[in-house]
């Protein structure tokens, strides 16, 4: 089943084209690395897929639902239920504990407390942070923070995870562990992942690589692990 379909998406800022007719798709459970130099349009594409930004033309469909024509609230609903993002700088809410950060999207989606309480331990367990669940973000290491961010992304059982340089702020050993975790979770839950990266090492967990240049997808090759 197609998890993500991007069709002829264009986007300009002040008449300066950033995306020029980008098209590709991701199957459920498929992982793709989006690579390219700075300014090639990777983050803009990610923002458009996440519903943070809107394409000027073209269409983005997630699990069969087109984002085109959706109002702000509908886009928020998509982010609450189908698409999660993992950031380079983790972006944990600094005033919430690790567990509260993971719980937060569930609260946003209106899940009852009882149900949340049942789900939460397994999410924490899944990223191996049971012993750190009450720690504040500033008390966690980079790797732990990214685990929390991943668990938070997983919490809503998304169809698609967008990962923006997920290992970019981690040392290489920790980065490897995080990549393994992402791969494992993607396979276990059948979640499609689009990973923006500069690092060729990230491609090892990806089924294929998408290469962008000047807003155009120049290459869609299958990864050789």
């Amino acid at each position: 089943m197609i998890a993500l379909q991007v069709s002829k998406v264009t986007k300009s800022y002040d008449k300066d084209p950033v995306l020029r007719g980008v098209s590709f798709s991701l199957e459920a459970g498929e992982r793709a690395a989006l690579m390219g130099p700075s300014g090639s349009g990777k983050s803009t594409l990610l923002n458009c897929i996440g519903g943070i930004d809107r394409p000027d033309e073209g269409e983005i469909t997630i699990q069969g639902r087109s984002l085109k024509g959706m109002d702000e609230n509908e886009l928020c609903q998509i982010r609450r239920s189908m698409v999660s993002t993992v950031f380079q700088f983790f972006h944990l809410l600094p005033t919430l504990t690790a567990a509260e950060n993971i719980e937060f999207p569930l609260q946003l989606s209106g899940m009852e407390e009882k149900e949340r309480r049942e789900l939460l331990p397994s999410l924490i367990e899944e990223v191996g942070l049971s012993h750190r669940s009450h720690a504040m973000p500033h008390e966690l290491s980079g790797g732990e923070m990214q685990r929390v961010a991943i668990a938070r992304a997983l919490s809503i059982r998304p169809k698609l995870i967008l990962a923006d340089e997920p290992t970019g702020n981690l040392d290489s050993a920790t980065g490897e562990i995080i990549l393994d975790l992402l791969e494992e979770l993607s396979e276990r839950h059948g979640i499609a992942m689009l990973l923006v990266t500069h690092s060729p090492g990230v491609t090892r967990i990806c089924d294929r690589t998408l290469e962008m240049q000047d807003g155009v997808l120049v290459d869609q090759s299958t990864a050789v692990v």
Binding site: G50, I52, E72, N73, C76, Q77, I78, R79, R80, S81, S84, T85, F87, F89, H91, L92, L93, P94, F104, P105, L108, S109, R152
Partner: peptide
């Protein structure tokens, strides 16, 4: 602002 971006990425609306 960084937090607001995160909140929005988690699905929080402007009204939220």
């Amino acid at each position: 602002r960084g937090e607001l971006t995160t909140l929005k990425s988690l699905g929080a609306t402007r009204a939220d």
